[in-house]
């Protein structure tokens, strides 16, 4: 039953833009899908206790490399985005390898990655002659209108379908990791690194694998965001605020379940939109305040997140029903 339900849901999501095209809700949906993909990318490593506060850095790299390659090198995003992924992956190796090799784990790992967020932000700001600094940056329009070569589209429907595809790809990767041996190794590592090593796991290598995967996916989210919005700034795709927002959304949605990050994205983005629409400029920054309060409440009372807790509740109900 759940299987047919899943296909029905997928069909509804794909079919939606052909029957409903109001621009504002479509825009919100596209944004939700892009961020859902970014949050899913974060949770691929986050669920194993590898809490990174540096993913804003990876997202920023993906976005800026794609945009800079286009504007300065006239390199199509079809090549620019993979370059961004590569750069994100490389940066992940440079930062994470020493951490894993010298057993910097838990809070200390989080702090190192937090520094990474800050550094990427500073680099973007400091090289303002090329990147526009904190004022932001715009990829040049290709001729006028849509182009597959430039990955620029004027229609929301196209962007919706692209974002949907990338989001589904993210879920697919999540499941691949979940079903693979990598999950066994990382669950073991998160509990007892020495014990895992004693069963033959090359701890550094396995941790690095998932980190590079997660970083590259996040860079792709950055590239996608850049192409869709046609405007990026350090505050929206990089920096500490973006990194923290990823952690917050995933914790709220559910870190251990595949759709948790998506639920987190729906909640955080709707919250920000509702505050913006109902209070306007008077509420600038309120969403961050509400995030902060909610985060504290969730970590204390609902560590599995909204979706995670609901699924656990349903499982417990079924277990009780089956036990009778």
């Amino acid at each position: 039953m759940t299987r047919s339900l899943r296909w029905l849901g997928a069909a509804a999501l794909v079919g939606l833009p052909f029957v409903y095209t109001a621009p504002y809700p479509m825009h919100i949906l596209i944004i939700i899908l892009i961020w859902s993909f970014a949050y899913t990318s974060w949770s691929i490593m986050g669920r194993f206790g590898l809490v990174s506060l540096g993913h804003g850095g990876f997202m920023g790299i993906g976005a800026y490399v794609t945009a800079l390659a286009w504007n300065y090198g006239h390199v199509s995003p079809w090549i620019g985005a993979p370059l961004g992924l590569l750069a994100g992956g490389l940066l992940a190796v440079v930062v994470a390898y020493p951490c894993f090799r010298f057993r910097i784990i838990g809070h200390y790992f989080a702090l190192v990655t937090l520094a990474l967020s800050g550094i990427v932000l500073q680099v973007i700001t400091a090289t303002r002659d090329y990147t526009g600094g904190s004022l932001g940056y715009t990829p040049e329009r290709y001729k006028n209108g849509s182009s597959l070569y430039a990955v620029q589209f004027t229609g929301k429907t196209t962007w919706y379908l692209i974002a949907l595809g990338v989001w589904a790809f993210g879920l697919y990767i999540w499941h691949r990791v979940d079903r693979g041996m990598l999950r066994y190794a990382l669950e073991a590592i998160s509990e007892d690194e020495d014990g895992a090593a004693a069963t033959g796991v090359h701890v550094t290598r396995e941790k690095l694998k998932v980190t590079v995967l997660s970083a590259a996916m996040t860079a792709l989210a950055g590239a996608l965001y850049c192409q869709y919005q046609m405007f990026i700034s350090p505050d929206t795709v990089s920096g500490i605020a973006v990194s923290l927002q990823m952690v917050f959304a995933v914790v709220v949605g559910g870190i251990y379940v595949p759709l948790g990050p998506t639920v987190g994205a729906v909640i955080t983005i709707m919250l920000a939109e509702v505050l913006r629409v109902s209070f306007g400029t008077r509420a600038v920054g309120w969403d961050n305040l509400v995030y902060g309060i909610l985060l504290v409440i969730f970590i204390i009372f609902l560590p599995k997140g909204i979706l995670g807790s609901l699924l656990a509740l349903r499982r417990a109900r079924r277990g009780a029903a089956a036990g009778e």
Partner: peptide, 9 residues
């Protein structure tokens, strides 16, 4: 299984 997989290369 974890041991069987990683312990055997």
């Amino acid at each position: 299984v974890l041991a069987g997989y990683y312990g055997q290369g």
